[in-house]
């Protein structure tokens, strides 16, 4: 595979034959960066989704009344609503209409199964003011005093397992990114060594013709840095395309939970830094490898 890259300045242009130094290195880097970008995006996306979900459900509570007697149930509901209206910590509350509850239950009972005799639980959605979650135990007690059969369920409680799973995913993604970075560094170091072996004769001649160590190191540095940059940009491009496509798919699903999948501006900036960091790593590896080899010569 031959590469066309912006080449070295004229004076050093032909010291390394085009593409010969490169070999498969840029393409391996491209694959690594592609995978790294996907893992990083997964981590950032899931982390953002988890934060979003947590913020959405924070302070949201559903009160369930499963009193069988419908007259008593209505009375209790009114009492609870009066109580809620007096609480400073309650931002708003809303009774879920019977039709909505029926719709919720339909999958389990079918249209025909629901008749007037069957007690349908009454639901009240409550939104607490930010910071008022601490008052939840008192609220529960007060509600239970008004209606012994009432159950209070903070939404966060249902989501706890989901949150835990999401956190695990974020950690896993982080671990993948670290592993991939380590592997990329190893590849870059190997590429630097192989470049040195391929061009050892050139390096020796340049040395004997009076080229200084930094002069020779710069040649290798530029070549390897450009190769790595080239691979990393391709990997980033492919990875970004995959992320955008994935985000589009999730948006098309219209799910409340996953509809917001994205990595945000900070995420994109972090991904843009990946090729730059890769190129710098490659330059560093090339420099250190070449300088070490030159130190063995007089």
């Amino acid at each position: 595979m031959r590469l066309r890259l912006p080449d070295l300045p004229a004076a050093e242009a032909q010291l390394f034959p085009e593409g010969r130094m490169a070999g498969p290195m840029p393409w391996v880097i491209a694959v690594m960066i592609f995978l790294t970008v996907l893992a990083a995006a997964m981590g950032m996306g899931v982390s953002r989704a988890a934060t979003g979900v947590a913020a959405d459900v924070a302070g949201r509570v559903t009160i369930q009344l499963i009193e069988a007697n419908s007259v008593r149930r209505a009375k209790q509901a009114q009492a609870i609503e009066r109580h809620l209206a007096e609480q400073a910590g309650v931002e708003n509350f809303q009774r879920v209409s019977a039709a909505e509850v029926t719709a919720l239950l339909e999958p389990w009972f079918g249209k025909a199964g629901l008749d007037q005799d069957l007690p349908v639980p009454m639901l009240i959605d409550v939104t607490l003011r930010p910071g008022a979650e601490k008052a939840l135990p008192q609220l529960s007690e007060a509600v239970r005093a008004l209606a012994p059969s009432a159950r209070i369920e903070p939404h966060g409680q249902w989501l706890a397992p989901l949150s835990a799973a999401m956190r695990s995913l974020v950690w896993l993604a982080g671990l993948l990114v670290v592993l991939m970075a380590v592997a990329s560094v190893a590849i870059i170091v190997l590429a630097a060594r192989s470049a040195l072996n391929t061009h050892r004769a050139t390096l020796e001649v340049l040395h004997l013709l009076g080229a200084s160590d930094p002069q020779i190191a710069r040649l290798f540095q530029r070549r390897l840095g450009l190769d790595a940059l080239f691979g990393a940009v391709i990997g980033l491009f492919a990875g970004s395309l995959a992320i955008l496509l994935l985000g589009y798919r999730f948006a098309a699903m219209g799910s409340d939970l996953l509809g917001s999948f994205g990595i945000g501006l900070a995420g994109w900036l972090a991904l843009l830094a990946v090729p730059v960091v890769t190129a710098i790593m490659a330059m560093l590896a090339a420099r250190l490898t070449v300088l070490a080899a030159l130190r063995h010569m007089l």
């Binding site: 032909q14 010291l15 034959p17 010969r20 004769a201 020796e204 340049l206 009076g210």
Partner: peptide, 29 residues
């Protein structure tokens, strides 16, 4: 080293550079 010109016994020409480029090398350095 830049003040010394050397003809090596085994020549040590750089194989991927043309005759012109090989001769130009010390000037480039």
């Amino acid at each position: 080293r830049r003040r010394i010109g050397v003809v090596f016994q085994d020549f040590r020409l750089i194989s991927h550079l043309s005759a012109f480029e090989n001769i130009a090398l010390p000037l480039r350095v």
